[in-house]
């Protein structure tokens, strides 16, 4: 366990010093939110105030994207031979991955905090109880962990740091095909089918319902998708790490 703690310290220090990632992690979500609330918000009609509608979507989009940035430091370590040093030491080799994943959770917690803070300034009025907040954050934690482990796996097999960042583009795009920004009812039927059944929609719906004090209807699929992905991604990433690095 002490090796993992040291690795977490390392990864957090590295992400704090990587200015690009740090800025992207916090500034991107805030800008996205301003864009949606002030530019598109007026044109989109929703039953509740648009800022209340969109904040959960922004949080899920940005944490999803932020989590995928885990792939880059992992790919960097694999390429630079740092992993070889760690693996030749009497410690559990994949604690280096654990370090990057936990740092990703820390970055996303910070980003979420910044988004909620700015959202409050823009008129976001959550009506959730402390318990509902805790549940929403708990679900987001599982979601971020799952995507971070998935990204860590991509980092292990990526041929370069640049290709490791491709997963991020995908995760930046996927939430648009969900209920993040507009209710799915406004979409053409085929797209609606996609949006309703893709994994991000139940996560967004659940977080939104929890924060705005609505009945939670998609908690089960949200947890199943996130938890399932977490188990699969963790197994895949650690298996890949053992396999790739013992060649």
């Amino acid at each position: 366990m002490s090796a993992a703690t040291t690795m977490v310290g390392r990864s957090i220090r590295l992400s704090r010093r990587n200015l690009d990632t740090a800025i992207m992690a916090v500034v991107l979500p805030v800008l996205m939110m301003a864009l949606f609330v002030y530019v598109f918000g007026g044109a989109i009609s929703s039953v509740q105030s648009y800022v209340d509608y969109v904040v959960p979507g922004i949080v899920v989009l940005c944490t999803g994207y932020g989590a995928t940035s885990t792939a880059m430091p992992v790919a960097d370590d694999m390429k630079k031979g740092v992993v070889d040093r760690f693996r030749s030491m009497p410690i559990s080799g994949f604690s280096v991955l654990t370090g990057h994943v936990v740092a990703s959770v820390a970055r996303n917690a910070l980003a979420t905090f910044a988004v909620v803070l700015v959202a409050l300034l823009m008129g976001f009025r959550p009506t959730a109880s402390v318990g509902a907040w805790a549940l929403a954050m708990g679900l987001l934690l599982v979601y971020v962990l799952a995507l971070s482990w998935l990204a860590a796996g991509f980092g292990v097999i990526a041929r370069s740091v640049e290709s490791a960042s491709l997963l991020g583009f995908f995760m930046l795009f996927l939430p648009y095909l969900s209920s993040a920004f507009v209710p799915v009812a406004t979409m053409p039927p085929w797209l609606r089918a996609v949006s309703e059944h893709q994994p991000i929609t139940p996560v967004i719906e659940t977080v939104r319902a929890l924060l705005t004090d609505q009945p939670v209807t998609s908690g089960r699929p949200a947890l199943a998708w996130s938890g399932g992905l977490l188990v699969v991604a963790f197994t895949w990433a650690t298996w890949l790490f053992r396999r790739i690095s013992s060649r």
């Binding site: 390392r10 220090r13 590295l14 010093r17 630079k80 031979g81 740092v82 070889d84 040093r85 030749s88």
Partner: peptide, 15 residues
């Protein structure tokens, strides 16, 4: 009981 110094300096640039 061993230590390895690989072909490329395995050091963290940002530390």
């Amino acid at each position: 009981v061993i230590s390895l110094t690989g072909q490329y300096a395995a050091v963290d640039e940002e530390q």
